[in-house]
């Protein structure tokens, strides 16, 4: 299971820690969401999302002020004994003394942010989503070609790294060679990055490891990139059918997200880099609303239906 510590949250969001005595390294956030405990403070604890960051905004704070001291203590106690990860006050509001004492008693970190509540919520959720995104590591090469993230896959030794090198020489950017860490940031977006150990390195059979950043400069590498399409390289198999038109997209799946996928047969003499480049730019054109295969289809149909002159 993935997790981030409250210490990281404090650092990232520049929060003020009211009770620095509490060890925030041990408190792990595993849920990419927040809760505003307004209903809980009003005494309703059914379906309480206790594992989330509890954000107390202006409304909650004002409501607490209307409670008599006994009720307030009882609600605070119930909230804090529920094993919540932390209490976070927005707008620079200071937690009252009872809250601080109870937080200390239950060892719950108590934090304050200067940001407005909705801004803080959006920031925390966005950051947690990225940090806690499901992640897998796969075998492949990720390059940024004309701004499209192209993931090249295929068996060991088929020429992925060589294709990447050629693409780099043509002015495209390498994200990672051999191992791609894929993070599912949302239902639509997959982000790929390199493991720290092998970042910016390529292995070429017969030469060994080369450092792309040192050899070709900063402009030839990139730290992370959305994955827009997948290219699967495979040995040419004459019995298999390969896409000749491109009228329908084929997809492959990572972590439940669909990505456009092209199976490309390789044979000696086929220039892989230029094929990858064309696939990327064609994908881009499709996204912009023009599909060459459809255009050809339309022309053929028009030719049949209307008997259009061949001098078209």
């Amino acid at each position: 299971m993935y997790g981030v510590t409250v210490t990281e949250l404090i650092k990232k969001m520049s929060l003020k820690n009211i009770l620095p005595e509490i060890d925030t390294d041990k408190v792990v956030l595993a849920h990419p969401d927040v809760n505003r405990p307004a209903l809980q403070l009003a005494g309703f604890f059914d379906h309480f999302d206790r594992e989330r960051v509890q954000i107390i905004g202006y409304v909650e704070q004002e409501y607490i002020k209307t409670l008599d001291p006994e009720t307030k203590m009882e609600r605070y106690d119930r909230l804090l004994c529920s094993d919540i990860p932390c209490v976070l006050y927005s707008r620079g509001q200071m937690p009252d003394e009872d809250m601080q004492n109870l937080c200390y008693h239950y060892q719950v970190p108590c934090l304050v942010s200067e940001k407005s509540t909705s801004e803080l919520m959006a920031e925390v959720i966005r950051w947690l989503k990225v940090k806690l995104a499901p992640c897998i590591s796969i075998h492949g090469v990720l390059v940024d070609v004309y701004g499209e993230g192209v993931l090249i896959m295929g068996e060991s030794g088929i020429g992925k790294s060589e294709a990447a090198l050629e693409l780099i020489k043509r002015g495209h950017r390498l994200v990672t060679d051999d191992v791609v860490e894929i993070h599912k940031v949302s239902d639509e977006t997959l982000v790929g990055r390199a493991p720290d150990i092998t970042k910016h390195f390529i292995e070429l059979r017969g030469i060994g490891i080369i450092d792309v950043k040192a050899l070709f400069g900063v402009e030839s590498v990139k730290d992370s990139q959305n994955i827009d399409m997948v290219i699967k390289l495979e040995d040419w198999d004459k019995d298999r059918e390969y896409d000749r038109l491109g009228l329908e997209d084929q997809y492959t799946e990572f972590l439940g997200n669909k990505v456009v996928c092209h199976n490309i047969p390789i044979r000696p003499g086929r220039n892989l880099a230029i094929i990858v480049e064309s696939a990327a730019v064609n994908h881009r054109q499709k996204k912009m609303g023009y599909n060459a295969a459809k255009e050809l289809y339309n022309r053929v149909q028009a030719n049949l239906g209307l008997g259009a002159p061949s001098s078209l």
Binding site: S137, V179, I197, I209
Partner: peptide, 26 residues
């Protein structure tokens, strides 16, 4: 790499191709 089989090595969350140098390094 001397074998045709697909060989993978797993440890914790990571699963890497045993024929990939960079993968194994991680």
């Amino acid at each position: 790499s001397q074998y045709d089989s697909r060989i993978y090595v797993e440890s914790g969350n990571a699963r890497v191709n045993a024929k990939s140098i960079m993968g194994m390094m991680t």
